[in-house]
Simulated scan of single mutants.
Amino acid sequence: MLVFEIALLIIFWGSLVLFSIGAPATCLNALLFFAIKSFRRSPSAYYIVGQSFADVIILLIILLEIVSAISVSISSIDCKLMIFSIQMAISVAMSFLCLSAFDRWACTSQTAGIRQLSSTYVARFLFPIPFIICSLLNILFLVYCDLIPPINICWFTNDIFMRIGTLVLSPILTVFLPLIVLIMFGLLTYRNIRFVTHIRHHANQARLSTREHQMTKMVLIQTLLCIFCSFPRAIFVIYAVATIDQSADRSFDQLAIVTLVDYSSQSVLCINFASSFYVFLLSSPRFRKTVQVYLKHQFHLGPNQVEPMNMGTTGKTLARR
Score class of each variant (00 low, 15 high):
3 V>S: 13
5 E>C: 01
10 I>M: 11
11 I>P: 00
15 S>L: 01
15 S>W: 00
24 P>H: 05
31 L>F: 14
33 F>H: 11
34 F>L: 05
35 A>N: 05
38 S>G: 13
40 R>D: 05
46 Y>W: 06
52 S>K: 11
57 I>D: 03
63 L>Q: 11
67 V>G: 02
71 S>Q: 15
73 S>N: 15
76 S>I: 04
84 F>S: 01
85 S>A: 14
87 Q>S: 02
88 M>R: 01
91 S>E: 03
101 A>G: 11
102 F>G: 01
102 F>V: 07
103 D>K: 05
103 D>Y: 06
106 A>P: 01
106 A>H: 06
112 A>N: 09
113 G>Q: 14
114 I>V: 09
115 R>L: 10
132 I>W: 03
134 C>S: 09
136 L>V: 07
137 L>D: 02
140 L>G: 00
144 Y>R: 04
149 P>W: 13
150 P>C: 08
151 I>R: 06
154 C>Q: 04
164 I>Y: 13
166 T>V: 11
166 T>I: 08
167 L>I: 07
169 L>W: 07
171 P>Q: 08
175 V>M: 09
175 V>I: 12
184 M>Y: 09
186 G>W: 07
187 L>T: 07
194 R>E: 14
211 R>K: 13
213 H>S: 13
219 V>T: 13
219 V>R: 12
225 L>H: 09
225 L>N: 09
232 P>A: 08
236 F>V: 03
241 V>R: 02
244 I>E: 01
245 D>T: 10
255 L>C: 02
261 V>T: 01
265 S>D: 03
271 I>H: 06
273 F>Q: 14
273 F>E: 15
273 F>T: 13
277 F>P: 07
279 V>G: 00
280 F>N: 04
283 S>W: 11
285 P>L: 06
285 P>F: 05
289 K>C: 06
289 K>Q: 10
291 V>A: 09
293 V>C: 03
295 L>M: 04
304 N>Q: 05
308 P>E: 15
313 T>P: 00
315 G>V: 08
317 T>R: 14
318 L>W: 14
319 A>W: 15
